[in-house]
């Protein structure tokens, strides 16, 4: 439940300050890369018991490939896409000028420091501060790319996001076959057909324990694979 003391209600929405408006070059680069990725991965997009919406959401997905965030981002309708910010690992995406430019300028990604987590500057707080009252997040709760295509256990970040902002819609996303398009450790893609499935949103139940919630969220992603 939201208390009046919740900082997100008392502070003015920082959204206006956040939307720096990407330069046209970065914007075009984003659209081009998204189009190339869509063609290469032959991605079909399904919404099961769910609709695209511009309300504030956290898209959480299994993680198999570097293309995941790009594909999810590009498969959202344009108005929704403008609001969605992928969360990525700082140690990987800030190495080298190209990666940094892609992450920060083109995809407007939120870089999280995986190696040096401070108590006062927890990733969850950072995410919540950055999205304000308008933006959405694309997160990969497994923490890193899966090696064998299996979905690993979820890290607790998703739970704390839900606990601190219980009204956020948590939308499960399943990415299928992208690990065959661009597996871990490869840099040349093979154009196999992949599929991205969005499921119905879920919320943290009252009194729901952390591990129960994380297991439920993981099952929600796995259920989309079969549907």
């Amino acid at each position: 439940m939201l208390s009046p003391a919740d900082p997100h209600l008392t502070t003015p929405p920082p959204a206006a300050a956040n939307v720096v408006g990407r330069s046209p070059v970065c914007h075009a680069a984003g659209l081009t890369l998204a189009a190339i990725a869509r063609v290469l991965s032959g991605a079909s997009v399904r919404w099961i018991a769910s609709q695209p919406d511009t309300c504030q959401r956290v898209y959480f997905s299994n993680h198999t490939s570097h293309l995941d965030a790009l594909l999810i981002w590009s498969s959202l309708p344009r108005a929704v896409r403008e609001l969605a910010r992928p969360v990525a690992a700082k140690d990987y995406w800030s190495r080298g000028a190209v990666r940094r430019w892609l992450a920060e300028k083109v995809f407007n990604a939120l870089l999280i420091d995986r190696t040096d987590i401070k108590v006062h500057q927890s990733p969850v707080d950072l995410m919540l501060r950055e999205i304000g009252d308008t933006k959405s997040l694309i997160v990969f709760p497994e923490g890193s790319r899966s090696v064998n295509g299996e979905i690993g256990d979820f890290k607790s970040g998703l739970y704390y996001l839900a606990k601190k902002r219980p009204e956020l819609e948590l939308v499960p996303v399943h990415v299928d076959n992208l690990n065959r398009v661009l597996p871990r450790g490869e840099f040349l893609p093979v154009p196999m057909l992949s599929c991205i499935t969005f499921g119905p949103p879920l919320w943290l139940e009252q009194q729901e324990a952390k591990l129960d919630f994380l297991a439920r969220a993981r099952r929600a992603v796995m259920a989309l694979k079969e549907s």
Partner: peptide
């Protein structure tokens, strides 16, 4: 791509593909 998507491949096939 439909054919290859349908048949299971392993990581070792990636570069050849």
């Amino acid at each position: 791509r439909e054919f290859i998507t349908l048949t299971p491949t392993r990581l070792g096939d990636h570069r050849a593909l």
